[in-house]
């Protein structure tokens, strides 16, 4: 379809449309919003993007986003280095931190195994994880990949790579949301929760 917009506008729409979760209609709406707002507002966004791109990088150890060589968790001596929590994306760390239940270190894989997207173990930060185990004295690895097809396969791959090294490898449990009702749980989640039941002390 030939573009009906002048090239700069079309380029803006196209670039916005490449962002995750933004479809063609949303891209169009955001583009026109940006054209309408004062130049200062639009420039502030442009600056924020380029500054973030310039200053933010991946932690050299765990691949969390960071503004230094090591991220806040990796440079914090108070954290327990014998436990590593493996997640798919840096944003997953935020979720786990909010629980306040975990005081160990993290490792971000930067994705999950998905041949359809050309992502195999080589593309993930798995080799980097393995090289951390000895030097940091890691005793347990908690695999916190997503409970979907790709996340489960990645978890299985990690378990197979880590177990022969004599580590404790655990998988985050799936189950019911706290404060929720059994009646509203979908049957898959409820099935998993039954599978992962535990004795009451």
């Amino acid at each position: 379809m030939a573009s009906v917009y002048t090239p700069p506008v079309q380029t803006l729409i196209d670039e916005l449309g490449r962002l995750p979760g933004i479809g063609p209609k949303s891209a169009q709406r955001i583009a026109f919003h940006l054209l309408k707002v004062p130049a200062d507002d639009a420039n502030r966004l442009a600056l924020a993007i380029s500054e973030a791109k310039d200053k933010v990088r991946f932690c050299e150890r765990c691949f969390n986003v960071s503004d230094a060589e090591l991220c806040g968790f990796c440079s914090d001596d108070r954290r327990d280095s014998s436990v590593i929590c493996v997640v798919e994306e840096a944003r997953d760390i935020v979720s786990i931190e909010r629980t306040g239940e975990f005081r160990g270190r993290y490792h971000v894989l930067l994705g999950s195994m998905s041949p359809l997207e050309g992502i195999g173990p080589e593309q993930l930060k798995i080799r980097e994880l393995l090289s951390r185990l000895g030097p940091e004295g890691v005793e347990e690895v908690i695999v916190c990949t997503n409970p979907n097809t790709e996340g489960e396969v990645t978890a299985m791959y990690l378990a197979r790579a880590l177990k022969p090294l004599g580590l404790t490898v655990t998988r985050i449990a799936s189950g019911l949301p706290v404060g929720g009702d059994l009646e509203y749980a979908d049957e898959l989640t409820l099935g998993r929760a039954l599978e992962g039941r535990r004795p009451i002390d």
């Binding site: 195994m113 041949p115 195999g120 173990p121 080589e122 097809t149 396969v153 299985m156």
Partner: peptide, 20 residues
Amino acid sequence: QAGGRMSEEIGITLDVWDAR
């Protein structure tokens, strides 16, 4: 992606997809 050729890496990755 294997392109008809078996490698160790492909084999290990296939193992987990097969298990699933």
